[in-house]
């Protein structure tokens, strides 16, 4: 177990420090949010109605950015060989990597999400709900995205390929995540949506590492 803890701490440090860490994803998030009013017009009524959804869409896109680095570097420099011969199975390695990705990338994005939504015109009362849904959903996004990252190992054009593989998989969390905020904002019962979102994230947490490990073994073979 201690080996896994060491790996987790290292991954956290790597994700935090690697290529500017979450700053790049955060900036991208902010950029998408800036372009939105320019594209649809700045009228508060129009922006306000799409703000929660747009924040969630931008969140999904931003969480794609750092996925390419999740396995690719380790695969190229031989670290993945070393990880495969360590005290923990690759499934556990994938779990540690996914959790680190969530904490170092998903959590900062979840902190920024309410700011973006409010800047786009969402009410202040939505702030806690946006943060919670982004944080829970981010877990699902990290683990689903990790599958795409592991599958595209050893391929040409990794980045675009990951996006093409992963974005259709992101449909449920985007629907449920934006649904939570939508329901909350319009005074409906938001708990089913949050329940679905949590269920999706937990399923991704449980099944994602299996697929990631299988994909890594395939890439190493």
């Amino acid at each position: 177990m201690s080996g896994l803890w060491i790996l987790f701490r290292r991954e956290l440090g790597q994700t935090w420090g690697r290529g500017g860490g979450p700053v790049l994803a955060l900036t991208f998030f902010a950029c998408v949010a800036t372009l939105l009013p320019l594209a649809v017009g700045a009228s508060p009524a129009r922006l306000g109605s799409v703000a929660p959804g747009a924040a969630w869409l931008a969140l999904a896109l931003a969480s794609l950015l750092s996925l390419e680095r999740l396995f690719e570097r380790d695969f190229e420099d031989g670290t993945l060989d070393l990880l495969a011969l360590g005290p923990a199975p690759l499934e556990a390695v994938a779990l540690a990597k996914g959790l680190a990705q969530w904490l170092a990338n998903g959590a900062p994005l979840a902190l920024l999400a309410p700011v973006v939504a409010v800047a786009l015109g969402a009410g202040l009362s939505l702030v806690p709900m946006i943060f919670i849904s982004a944080l829970i959903g981010g877990l699902g996004l990290s683990f689903t995205g990790g599958i795409g990252a592991a599958l595209s190992l050893g391929s040409r054009r990794g980045g675009v390929l990951i996006a093409v593989i992963v974005l259709p998989l992101f449909a449920p969390p985007v629907i449920f995540g934006a649904g939570v905020i939508d329901a909350y904002a319009s005074g409906l019962d938001w708990r089913p949506a949050l329940g679905f979102l949590s269920a999706y994230s937990l399923a991704a947490l449980a099944l994602g590492p299996l697929a990631m490990a299988a994909a890594c073994r395939n890439a190493l073979s």
Binding site: Q14, D77, G78
Partner: peptide, 9 residues
């Protein structure tokens, strides 16, 4: 296992 890639970042 020590190959050509040493896994050192």
């Amino acid at each position: 296992l020590l190959g050509h890639q040493d896994g050192l970042k």
